[in-house]
């Protein structure tokens, strides 16, 4: 499904602000894999995510989806295959446009826009059916501007938008981090439900170890621009937070306080 082969990324090379973000990362995802990604600040989680999404080009290596090499594709072209939810709830939606207009744009992801009417009323039944399971009351507010919604509502809407055009890969970049704990819980529940029902191949960054252990069938931990730990299946199911910390200390070869890992 997703094949990342020896990619590397350094920001501002040769300057005083040089930052080696990814050293040498290879990762293979099978169809339907739900991978959680953890790691401390500057471990390279977001850089990995943005490299896949095409926010910037990588320095070395290749990225392919279903055998198709997308390494040189610009961001908007990769969007045909990749759905994304950002950490900032403002990033994933157009605040000044109505809920139905946002959904209409998302429903056409990866298709060339035409001169057809963007948000015809015939879409509404379909949109209401999609929004109703979120239980946020959005199905009755199709004509509200997205800017009027709360952060949690916007994140749930973005999640729906990212998945409605059946992406091959779903990227979630700490998409619950900016929400209050209760809302975060709800958005995460919606996430696992959508991903589970549709068997979406998903890569989810989280700052919360418990969430990382609870969700998905595979867990990777990043440290210093490398993938340090990669557990899947039964082994992951039985993993606990102390196990994870012990594994990390062993792999990193140093005595590390758990908060450098937990805090991001």
């Amino acid at each position: 499904m997703l094949d990342i082969v020896h990619i590397a990324k350094t920001f501002n090379p040769g300057t005083i602000t040089e930052k080696i973000a990814l050293v040498d990362v290879s990762l293979h995802l099978d169809d339907g894999d739900f991978v959680t990604v953890i790691g401390g600040n500057g471990a390279g989680k977001s850089t990995l995510m943005n490299s896949i999404a095409g926010t910037f080009p990588v320095d070395r290596g290749s990225i392919s989806i279903d055998g198709e090499d997308i390494t040189s594709w610009p961001e908007h072209r990769r969007a045909k295959y990749i759905g994304r939810v950002f950490q900032d709830p403002m990033m994933g939606t157009a605040a000044g446009m109505m809920i139905e207009e946002n959904l209409a744009i998302a429903s056409r992801r990866g298709k060339m826009p035409t001169l057809r009417w963007s948000a015809p009323e015939s879409n509404r039944t379909k949109f209401r059916e999609l929004l109703a399971p979120l239980k946020l009351g959005l199905e009755d507010r199709l004509e509200s501007k997205v800017g009027l919604l709360s952060g949690g509502q916007r994140q749930a809407l973005t999640l729906l938008m990212a998945t409605m055009a059946n992406p091959k890969l779903l990227l979630l970049d700490e998409h619950t981090a900016a929400l209050d704990p209760k809302t975060a819980e709800k958005v995460l529940d919606i996430t696992t439900k959508i991903v589970g029902e549709r068997h979406l191949t998903t890569l989810m960054i989280t700052h919360n170890m418990r969430d990382a252990l609870r969700c998905g069938n595979r867990l990777i931990m990043m440290y210093d621009g490398k993938i340090l730990i990669d557990v899947k299946g039964e082994e992951k199911k039985n993993l606990t937070v102390p196990d994870l910390l012990a594994m990390f200390e062993k792999a990193a070869g140093s005595e590390l306080t758990s908060d450098s890992l937990l805090l991001s």
């Binding site: 961001e75 403002m90 939606t93 605040a95 000044g96 744009i105």
Partner: peptide
């Protein structure tokens, strides 16, 4: 109000969003 027009309006509101939508 068309698909192309909506994409232009979305660009003004949030270029990240519309790029993520292809």
């Amino acid at each position: 109000g068309t698909e192309i027009g909506a994409a232009i309006r979305a660009t003004g509101f949030n270029p990240n969003m519309i790029r993520a939508n292809g």
